[in-house]
Amino acid sequence: MELVGSLLQAALRMATPLIYAAIGETYNERAGLLNLGIEGLMLIGALTAYTIAFFYQSILLGVLGAAVVAGLFGLLFAFATVTLKANQVIIGTALNLIGLGMTSYVHRMLFNTLAGSAGNVQVLPTLRVPVLKDIPIIGPALFEQNLLVYLALLLTPIAGFVLYKTSLGLALRAVGEHPKATATAGLSVTRLRYGAMVFAAMMAGIGGAYLPVAHANTFVENMVAGRGFIALAIVVFSRWNPVNVLWASLLFGFTFALQFRLQIVNLRVAYQFLQILPYVVTLLAMVVLRGQTAQPKALAVPYTEQV
C-alpha cells in the first residue's frame, strides 16, 4: 500500500514538467503551430531558473525568469514562423541546437565548470496538507507535493475550460483549423499565433525550470534529456485535449518512476523495456485512434493573407 502510494507520488512529480510543456504545446498546435524546439526551450528555462536561484536564492523568481526568457525565445520562433513563414520543423530543429549549445556554453562560463554541476540550489519545499495526506494510496500523491505540482494539477482543467468554453479558446481552435475563416471573421491570425507560441514557450520554460528547482536541485548539461520530445508525443497522445494531457503525462511519469525503482533493485532488462514502453504505447495508441484524428487541419501550415 505504502509502496503504491509513494510510487504514485513520484509519478506525479515526474509528470509535472511534462504537463507544463505539453499544455503549452497543445495550445500552440491548436493554433496551427508545431514547435519541435520544446527541448531547447526547456533547457533555456532550466538554466535560467537555476542561475537566478543560485545567485538570488529565490526559487519563485527563478521560475518566473525562466518563463520570461523562454517566452522571448518563443517570440523569436513566432517571428520566424508566422511573420517570415519559415518552415516550423526547421526552425524547431535550430532552436534545439541553439538551446543545447547556449545553455551548455553559458553554464560553463557563468559557473566556471566543465560540464559537471556547479553546486546545489534550494528545492521547492513540500507543502503537506494535514489529514488529507494520510489518505491511503492517493494521499501522498495529491496532498504531499511542492507548489509547482499543485499548480500543474490546477492548470489542466483551467486550460481545458479556456480552450473549450471561452471565446479566446474558440478563436485559438478556429485559427488552427481555418485561419482564413478566422481572418474573415475579423480576428488577427498573426496575433493569435504569436500569443499561442509565446504562451507555449513560457510553459516549456516553467517545465524546464521545474527540473533544477524541484527535482534535481542543480543544473547539468542536457538535463532535459528528451522530455521536450516526450511532451510532443503527449500532445498527440492526448489528442490535442489539455485535460487528457494530465493522464498521458502521468503514464510517462509512472514509467519513469518505476524505472528508478527497478534500477535500484538492479533489474536491468526489465528497466530497458520499461524505458521504451511509453513510446511503443504512444505509437500503438496513435494507430488505434487514427480514425478519429483530432489534428488541427492547419497544423504547421503558414498563413498568407490574400489581398
Binding site: A94, G101, S104
Partner: peptide, 22 residues
Amino acid sequence: VPAVLTFIIQGLIIAFIISFRY
C-alpha cells in the same frame, strides 16, 4: 573555449539561411 559553441553556430546557420531565403 567550450566545444558546445559549435551547436550554437550550427543552429544559427540554419536560422540565418531560413531568414535569407525569405
